[in-house]
């Protein structure tokens, strides 16, 4: 089973932060307070969209063909994502 990285608190829906990181090789643990990068803060579906978009060389036309959706629908998805990222950056 593929585990999903939780980005929102299951209790209060606030954005989660990273408090510890582990080196699997030597078992060193780094603790601290790290903000997740913007891409990591997006949900799984949005991250997949961005990855597919990059794989499609940034072509909305190819994306639309891959997702079997119309061009304006895919463009709207991208525009909504851009809006969300801008708002995240402003916070």
């Amino acid at each position: 089973m593929e585990k999903r990285l939780p980005v929102l608190c299951p209790s209060c829906d606030s954005q989660l932060r990273v408090s510890s990181l582990l080196c699997e090789h030597c078992n060193t643990t780094v603790t601290g307070f790290f903000k997740l990068p913007v891409l990591m803060r997006l949900d799984q579906k949005e991250q997949s969209f961005i990855i597919e978009f990059v794989k499609s060389s940034g072509s909305l036309k190819i994306m639309a063909e891959k997702l079997k959706l119309s061009y304006p629908t895919v463009r709207n998805m991208l525009d909504d994502l851009i809006d969300k990222i801008i708002k995240m950056d402003e916070k």
Partner: peptide, 10 residues
């Protein structure tokens, strides 16, 4: 249907 069809085809 426009989520699936638009542009020249429609």
């Amino acid at each position: 249907p426009f989520n699936y069809i638009a542009g020249a085809k429609s």
